[in-house]
């Protein structure tokens, strides 16, 4: 398998107008961090387009928090990517909408954090955050872009999942996707997501319930009585797949950070090259040389095939590539137990 930089992420900033308790990225010093300029982002977009990148995700932090967001976006857009924009939807100004209307992204992802302003105040530190997010989504849904809504629960909001799903579906006709797994802070992030994330049992319970409901929603009403849901284990690869980090990171996907570093994955900066200084293609080509991973002790685990542990998560959760995070172990074991019960 050859490497090819098919899917890119541009992390325009790590700054954000929210102070979410479960944020993995925001840093205490993020207001002072040196970010690439608009001209540098546009030049990098040109380089990654020439290198053959097809899908590009614009994210943060909160990308709309940058005062020059529209300048950056308008400079990147004409290069012709399948473009996705991730935002919290609380900063959708008229100027942003004017730009997005002329240049709609192919996909917009909005993460929600609660069902009311009180939740946003407690979790994100923004007292009118829910109203602003709803208003932002109302504007964004007028675009032809595919709109995805996500919900990241904390232990305070986990009981509100059904309420949120109903409210959002009634208002926008979209079932929010649940992002239940929350990892400890990465890359110097200053928050402590592990103190407010749902427990492994809660995570498995809600994920299971939501997945089952989602699958059943896909079945037309008149066929429901004929359909039986079954579970299969992950597909085994029929051929050896070459990876650097256990997935497509650094093989077909990459992240350029707010300051121009090239990472395989936004969660892990142990291995990096410098897209700004070296140029994107040389940095991409040199990236594999930087990856040095020790053998992982989970090699003999009976749950390995169905476990989602990866080097980035091991590092985030334990501070070591050889660490065994109990959070992931518990989620995997509980999920396997659930599967057995379902069967």
């Amino acid at each position: 398998m050859s490497r090819y930089p098919m899917d890119g992420t541009f992390e325009l900033t790590l700054r954000c107008n929210l102070r979410c308790k479960m944020c993995m990225f925001r840093r205490e010093d993020s207001q002072a961090m040196e970010e690439l300029t608009a001209a540098q982002w546009i030049d990098l977009a040109d380089q990654v387009a020439k290198a053959g990148t097809m899908s590009l995700l614009i994210t943060g932090g909160e990308p709309l928090f940058r005062k020059d967001f529209t300048e950056i976006y308008a400079g990147i857009y004409p290069k012709g990517f399948l473009l996705a924009l991730y935002t919290n939807a609380t900063l959708v100004t008229d100027r942003v909408m004017e730009t997005l209307r002329a240049m709609p992204p192919h996909r917009i992802g909005v993460t929600l954090y609660g069902t009311c302003n009180e939740d946003y105040k407690n979790i994100c530190g923004l007292s009118d955050g829910f109203d602003r997010a709803m208003e932002g989504i109302e504007k964004l849904r007028t675009l032809p872009s595919a709109l995805e809504l996500r919900f990241t629960p904390t232990c305070d909001t986990i009981e509100k999942i059904e309420e949120l799903d109903k409210r959002i579906y009634d208002r926008f006709g979209i079932h929010p996707i649940l992002s239940a797994r929350v990892f400890k802070a990465v890359r110097g992030g200053c928050m402590q997501p592990e103190t407010c994330r749902p427990s492994p049992r809660q995570t498995v319970d809600i994920t299971w319930k939501q997945t089952e409901a989602r699958l059943r929603n896909l079945i037309p009403e008149e066929f429901k009585k004929y359909v039986k849901l079954e579970i299969s284990d992950r597909c085994e690869y029929t051929e050896q797949t070459q990876t650097l980090l256990g997935c497509g990171a650094g093989m077909k996907s990459f992240t350029v950070t707010y300051d121009g570093k090239l990472l395989g994955c936004q969660l892990l900066d142990t291995f990096q090259t410098d897209a700004l200084q070296e140029g994107f293609l040389p940095a991409w080509e040199r990236f594999p040389e930087t990856v040095q991973l020790p053998p992982h002790p989970c090699g003999d685990c009976e749950y390995l095939q169905n476990c989602t542990l990866c080097p980035a998560v091991a590092m985030a959760e334990t501070g070591s590539f050889t660490g065994v995070p109990s959070y992931i172990c518990e989620i995997t074991k509980l999920t396997e137990k659930r599967k057995e019960e379902f069967r």
């Binding site: 090819y4 098919m6 387009a49 053959g52 990148t53 097809m54 857009y77 004409p78 012709g80 990517f81 399948l82 002329a102 240049m103 709609p104 192919h106 032809p144 872009s145």
Partner: peptide, 17 residues
């Protein structure tokens, strides 16, 4: 665009609708 030696047309602008 040329993506992995394949010619592709990416839809942009008002065409996305």
């Amino acid at each position: 665009r040329k993506i992995a030696d394949v010619d592709v047309l990416i839809s942009i602008g008002g065409n996305v609708a």
